[in-house]
């Protein structure tokens, strides 16, 4: 039962990478993406929402994301951090230059999320609505390093349900869309449950070769889990993390099906979470 602010960043990552919207993939079609996501932070939001410094910490994830249409209404979803690296810097004396606390790193597989999206409305509906059931599998390492404070996963199974809705329309005579979601994340091992929400506005430019999207994502904790006071205090337990983040995504189709993506995301408020931007670059294959 160990988690730290790093893990919360991973949640933050997932939210910004997997916003597939309410549109299930058509049967036999899919969307696949390989991306590199990273953040390096030397400050974080405290439990009171203020910003405090911390030892510089870096997290790098090489992630495969995929959606595949099993039927026109059922879509399988996977988000798999195939390689996750986290590290903390050395802490040195500015007086003697000697290392006070040696930096450490941890490499491995991250936690894998699997899900199934079901279209509640018929394909081609004017206002599509879908529901996604997801499970988080603790394939990562929740307690690496000499202090057990380095993680590539949170060490807990979780189950989530999410409802997405959206609408396609014309904006400045261009194809555009607006989608939103709300979800509930049930977590095990005394972690607090979470309410997740998001809003996304996207527009296709240059004959829809370039899609630009702005996103707002958030997590509100139910604060019904354990804290350092209620668990063995020697465990590295932080809970009740929250954030609101904004993101900007650029997806450019190099060919009809293959493209590259770049994204930037940052928390605008939060609690027990990194206070630094996150970046992602990737290449995708869209079987449209």
């Amino acid at each position: 039962m160990k988690i730290n602010i790093i893990t919360i960043v991973l949640v933050f990552i997932t939210s910004t990478l997997t916003a597939g919207g309410p549109w299930p993939q058509p049967k036999g079609k899919g969307y696949f993406k390989l991306s590199e996501w990273w953040t390096v932070f030397d400050q974080h939001y405290t439990d009171s929402g203020m910003i405090d410094p911390n030892l510089t910490t870096g997290i790098y994830n090489t992630t495969f994301y995929g959606e595949y249409g099993i039927t026109d209404r059922f879509t399988a979803v996977v988000n798999a951090p195939l390689f996750s690296r986290t590290y903390m810097n050395n802490l040195r004396s500015s007086t003697t230059n000697e290392i006070i606390i040696a930096g450490e790193s941890l490499n491995g597989v991250g936690d894998i999320d699997l899900g199934v999206k079901y279209g509640l409305t018929k394909p081609g509906s004017n206002i599509p609505i879908s529901v996604t059931l997801g499970v988080g599998i603790p394939t990562g390492n929740p307690s690496g390093g000499s202090q057990g404070n380095l993680q590539t996963g949170d060490g807990e199974f979780n189950q989530s349900i999410q409802i997405d809705g959206g609408k396609s329309f014309k904006l400045f005579n261009k194809n555009a869309y607006l989608s939103s979601y709300a979800g509930f994340n049930n977590r095990t091992n005394d972690f607090s449950e979470e309410f997740r929400y998001g809003l996304e506005l996207g527009i296709g430019l240059f004959n829809q070769k370039l899609w630009v999207a702005t996103k707002l994502n958030g997590i509100k904790s139910f604060k019904n889990g354990a804290t350092a006071e209620t668990v063995n205090s020697t465990s590295l337990f932080a809970n009740n993390s929250e954030f609101t983040s904004v993101a900007l995504d650029f997806n450019y189709y190099i060919t009809r099906r293959v493209g590259v993506s770049i994204s930037y995301a940052t928390a605008i408020n939060g609690a027990i979470i990194a206070a630094a931007p996150a970046y992602s670059v990737g290449v995708f294959y869209d079987m449209k």
Binding site: L34, S35, E36, W38, D42, L55, T56, G58, Y60, T62, R85, Y87, M88, N89, N90, L91, R92, S93, S94, I100, G103, E104, S105, V260, V281, G282, V283
Partner: peptide, 20 residues
């Protein structure tokens, strides 16, 4: 390209120094 870009990004993920 993304593979090599990932390698470049990961290469920048080395442990450095913070000072107190």
């Amino acid at each position: 390209s993304i593979f090599f870009l990932s390698l470049i990004i990961l290469a920048s993920s080395c442990i450095e120094d913070d000072f107190v």
